[in-house]
């Protein structure tokens, strides 16, 4: 409240409020300040509830099985062990292979989505061609179809095309994301046409203009797309469940999921599972912290648009 009052240009403030009102506003500000200790306490409690599970996850991955079972809340392992990570990287598990597959899929999907979504978004925003309205309506319609409903249908097509149990089957269906097209279209509509017009008048072809003028200008939206595509494909599970069954093609999500299902009933092996879960979270966490500011305002921008 006080910050707002300070940043208000003096003339504007004078114009809009009498001195009497100013006093009132400060009064309101004081009331707001009074409520803060309670707000902070509440926020702190909620924040602990949100963060603590992840701390437990990391701590437990350094515990022994019995320690994890006996002291599930403790953040300090009774006797530190890196057995979890030795098993994951050196033991009988294919963890490195799963990580490799996840990286392959994520890189391909991210590149594909950036390229294809920005091309389609650009065409829908800027190029005039017959059928544009229909194409746009189609893409919006596709966005409305819930993904889980498509599990069996996707398998049918992948199987019919003969790409079941291949990287192609895992990657190609994810290469375009209707929401990504939508984001890029909105972005291109929000930037002025003058620069590309200049390029076009200078005789550059449509593709040249797109590649060397438009795409570099679209950097903020491209970063948004990269974040969404990376996070989406790294965390994807259901599509990989229906598009492949070969253990050599397991991604981290699928591999770790089998790990989770396998140990039930018998020895729980929670340190191992939690260690694997923690490791697979690292790339998205890094991505998140690197682009934190961007991600927070991305959602805001998307909602405005």
């Amino acid at each position: 409240m006080t910050v707002a009052a300070q940043t208000l240009p003096a003339s504007e403030a004078e114009e809009r409020s009498s001195g009497d009102r100013q006093v009132q506003v400060t009064g309101g500000g004081r009331r707001a300040v009074l409520t803060t200790p309670l707000t902070y306490a509440l926020l702190a409690v909620i924040a602990i509830i949100y963060i603590f599970p992840f701390l437990i996850q990391i701590a437990t991955s350094f515990k022994t099985d019995s320690d994890a079972a006996n002291n599930p809340v403790s953040l300090v392992p009774a006797n530190w062990t890196t057995a979890t990570y030795e098993t994951l990287f050196g033991g009988g598990l294919d963890f490195p292979l799963w990580a490799m597959n996840s990286i392959i899929v994520t890189v391909c999907v991210t590149i594909g989505r950036v390229l294809f979504c920005s091309m389609a978004g650009y065409a829908l925003a800027r190029l005039h061609f017959r059928g544009r309205g229909v194409v746009y309506a189609g893409i919006i319609a596709v966005m409305a179809v819930p993904g889980v409903v498509l599990l069996i249908p996707k398998f049918l097509v992948v199987n019919q095309l003969g790409i079941y149990d291949t990287y192609a089957g895992m990657i190609v269906p994810l290469l375009v994301d209707a929401a990504g097209v939508f984001i890029m279209k909105n972005f291109f509509e929000s930037i002025p046409v003058s620069v590309e017009e200049a390029a076009r008048i200078d005789g550059a072809g449509v593709f040249r203009t797109f590649w060397s003028v438009v795409l570099p200008m679209a950097r903020p939206a491209v970063i948004t797309l990269v974040i969404l595509a990376f996070q989406g494909s790294w965390n994807e599970l259901s599509h990989f469940v229906v598009s492949a069954q070969d253990p050599d093609l397991y991604t981290l999500t699928k591999g770790v999921a089998t790990l989770a299902a396998g140990g039930q009933g018998q020895a729980q092996q929670f340190p191992l599972k939690l260690g694997a879960a923690a490791l697979m979270t690292i790339p998205v966490a890094l991505m998140f912290f690197a682009f934190q500011r961007k991600i927070m305002s991305t959602a805001e921008g998307a909602e405005k648009g």
């Binding site: 437990i56 996070q231 965390n235 981290l252 770790v256 939690l274 697979m280």
Partner: peptide, 17 residues
């Protein structure tokens, strides 16, 4: 933060918790 982590990792965490 919980929103960016994969559902697989979160489910495993909840199975433990």
């Amino acid at each position: 933060f919980p929103s960016v982590t994969s559902s697989v990792a979160i489910v495993i965490l909840f199975l433990f918790l």
